[in-house]
Write a protein that binds this DNA or RNA. Structure first.
Lengths: 152, 152
DNA sequence: TATTGTTATACTCTATAACTATA
DNA sequence: TATAGTTATAGAGTATAACAATA
């Protein structure tokens, strides 16, 4: 079925199937769409996806070294410096010299950082709920995450 | 089950679930992983994902205008110029003045472009087959594409 | 010698404004 | 006036090399 649609006018449909029915292409499109909606949802908090992930990870693992946090997030430690500088500049995180290794920075949320993260988690939970609703429910979400895991 | 793993040593496991059990995060990771493998597979052809998509789309829709091809691929027409310049510089595509509108460029594959695309399609088919195998079969692929479509 | 954080740098991708030649 | 292609430019994200302080 489907295949080529007859050209009714000069503005005929493009034949896109062979190009766009591809896992990598669909994956990229979906990711861009989700990130776009994420940016909208977090616009009021002025928070980017990587910044949210860093805050949440520090919140769940206070005192970890910069490099540990960066590595988990898949961010090079050199690039993580600017990200954490931004969060620290907003008073959300702080660096303390790691006990036992004066080269390393242990990362913590400030009091304000904790309050901010609580708000951000609410936004994220709502956002996630919207994604799950789009997918058709928690079972569909589990299926998606399982399939995505197989591609890594 | 699962939840927090007890810290057996000083190098305790990080608590990552709350941060990484998120659709957007998993989507980004899977997309990066797939694109990385795509780049490896296409290294010998020196072809990037967007370049492959452009070639395949032009091959299936010869004579279409630059802006049409760019729009389908989600690339701004300003940025598409450099991409198509690259393909044209390699002798794979050519611009012809569109009949009926001398402002527009109609895009075509050259003979060499057609041969090259045939090779690229083989690489892509193998790559796609590998992705499908990782997912667990064609049915799992269909499920994934269906779920991804719901997120757009 | 090796590692942590940092700076500098470069390359890709993406986004916008403005120009030209046509329409 | 509006549109197709182009140029220039700026902003993210990402990658590597090299340095100082410390291990």
């Amino acid at each position: 079925m489907s295949a080529v649609q007859g050209s009714v006018t000069d503005e005929a449909m493009l034949e896109t199937g062979a190009t766009t029915d591809i896992i990598g292409y669909r994956l990229r499109r979906a990711q861009l769409s989700v990130f776009q909606r994420f940016l909208s949802a977090f616009e009021a908090l002025d928070l980017r996806p990587a910044e949210y992930s860093a805050l949440a990870l520090i919140g769940d693992n206070p005192g970890r070294k910069q490099t540990e946090i960066a590595e988990i997030l898949g961010i090079k430690r050199a690039n993580f410096v600017a990200l954490i500088n931004g969060l620290e500049g907003r008073g959300l995180t702080e660096r303390r010299t790691a006990p036992g290794d004066r080269r390393a920075n242990a990362l913590y949320l400030t009091k304000e950082g904790e309050r901010f993260l609580a708000r951000a988690r609410k936004v994220q939970d709502d956002f996630e709920a919207d994604c799950i609703a789009r997918l058709g429910g928690p079972k569909a979400r589990d299926t998606l995450l399982e399939l995505l895991g197989k591609l890594c």
